[in-house]
Design a protein around this nucleic acid. Structure first.
Lengths: 193, 193, 193, 193
DNA sequence: CATGAATGAGATTTCATTCAT
DNA sequence: AATGAATGAAATCTCATTCAT
């Protein structure tokens, strides 16, 4: 399995750095290879083509979000508490890795439709977990039982995403994680029963 | 003033169509020229470069949003009512022009950081009006007076934007405007005092 | 019609020279462009891709053979005389243009199957004219009336082609046209009634 | 001597199959190795480089033609009879092995000048035997004593080769060996005194 | 004003060959 | 002897922009 070989992750990480530092369209395969400390051709032993690198980057990194969120859901806390943790986790992961934040919020969105569709498919797993929390909260009576789950999810994700993107475009000039409580409050207010 | 000559708008509209039908990266200057019924070189009599076309597209089209929102603000209605109208107007304008919706929600976001920064600058006027409504609502006691206006604005815009994008990616399969009341409710809930 | 613009023929001729001097695989588009005195990109205003250049080279040059052969067939001479003229013409055209001879006999044969199939299709017109001469000669009783026309044609063409290729591989060390009478004699002997 | 080790022939045969099935330009060293059931690197223990494989393929396979032709020449039959047998043998060997026919008639000819010169050198042995038959026939008075032996040989080989190639390009749709008598007749007619 | 032919820089990917194990 | 992971050079084609007419 290529996915477990050390060079696989090495190239993924190099891609994040290369894209963050050069921008999506200026992150040529040769730059990624150089950053990874391998020859250009080596890239193609681990990835089918450049598109495959980009999608794999998103997939591997998104995995952290999904794994964390799955842990959060398993908690015995309330749905509100879970949503609070989700937002904080989302901010924390990105605040800890500015390169990753730039790549997911700005650079990867410049990719063509085909890649974006694949990225969206990966994102769905994360959004499904978010739906789980919302539905749970509705069943328990914590959240408004008459709301449209899909719209509610889009509000939560849209809010978190917009705030993160604005933070990245500001060049990380302020503390994203510190905003979590206020963001959570706004969002929970919108959802509450 | 080039902006008022007939070919200027002709090219702008051609760009929207060319981008919507071909995608951002496949909307070459020659395609825009052909769609506009002018020679490639003619484009450069009205625009400095391709970037200038794209930014102008956003600028011209954004004008409608801003004009409508200014009218809404002048109303004598409550802040909640103004926000309600803003969301409905946002949805209505895009629901009426699928080409424009595709271009602003999907295609133009594939542009590079530089263009996106300029687009954000144009967007600011719209967001400033949104801020006005929010502040007004806080002063009047309709909205939570302790909230962070910037975050609140990002929640409103992020929600509306995410819902619109999802609708575009679904190929306009449902009625966007019909969602307005529920979206408004979610958002107003989040903001309310 | 691109085919009649001066640059079209200019590029075709440049391709013959570039291929003859550098070999098929070393005749990069940039070399052809340089030889033609145009920019690389200009090539693509006249040809769809590199393959299109190569096929067009063959087509344009083969045209001379076909045109000459059509004139020969219109003569009032005997079929033997026509065949004699065909062979002499074939040798003369190639003997006059060593570059062309190298390209058709050696270099163009290194192309891939797809291109070779298209080249063969072009060649068919020439071979059809040869068939005409053979059939005419059989009907008039000059040639063996029991022979298989297809095999006879393959003998004539195979002989002429092999002799030409050998001459090219010898670096044109002898006079190809001077061989025509003897070659004709061999071939006519094979065909005679 | 590497030539006698089992893996040598194994690789040669694998090369014929790989080239026949994938085409000359798509028969990468790795494909030949896979077909042979050895590692890529192993190839280089038996062959200097890829060119060496191709030339060796031709050399090894040409050996059969030469051996058969030497047997034929030793016969006590007439020169016409020997030529008859030569043509039939040529057709039979290739008709029995379609892979080999494709490789020698189509694929190997896509190689560059350098390789083709080396292939021609190998072919010379076969052509020298053909010359022997022709000279013998001239001395015995069977063949035209005034003809140019070199041209006569090129006629015979050119004819046989062209007919074989046409058969291969037709996808072996008809019986090549069945053509032998008619081909022989055409050729012998051309040569006869 | 308008045209459109010409320009030329720039990047992904393949594959023969090597060499440490 | 055998392996196969790693190397890295090299070429087609696109497209924003210019400028002579």
């Amino acid at each position: 399995m290529k996915r477990n070989k050390p060079k696989y992750k090495q190239i993924i990480d190099a891609a994040v750095i290369a894209i963050a530092e050069n921008g999506y369209h200026q992150a040529q395969v040769s730059k990624i290879a150089k950053q990874a400390g391998v020859a250009d051709g080596t890239i193609y032993l681990y990835f089918k083509n450049k598109e495959d690198i980009l999608i794999s980057v998103f997939q591997e990194k998104m995995g952290v979000f999904v794994d964390n969120l799955q842990d959060i859901i398993k908690n015995e806390s309330s749905s509100s508490e879970k949503l609070t943790q989700m937002i904080e986790n989302h901010f924390q992961v990105l605040a800890k890795d500015h390169h990753l934040a730039t790549v997911t919020q700005l650079e990867l969105r410049q990719s063509n439709k085909e890649i974006r569709l694949k990225i969206n498919a990966i994102l769905k797993e994360y959004l499904a977990l978010l739906d789980q929390i919302l539905i749970e909260g509705m069943l328990s009576g914590e959240f408004n039982t008459t709301m449209d789950v899909r719209l509610a999810r889009q509000m939560v994700f849209g809010t978190v995403d917009e705030i993160t993107t604005t933070w990245v475009m500001s060049d990380y000039r302020y503390d994203l994680v510190a905003l979590a409580p206020k963001v959570t409050q706004l969002v929970l207010n919108g959802l509450k029963a």
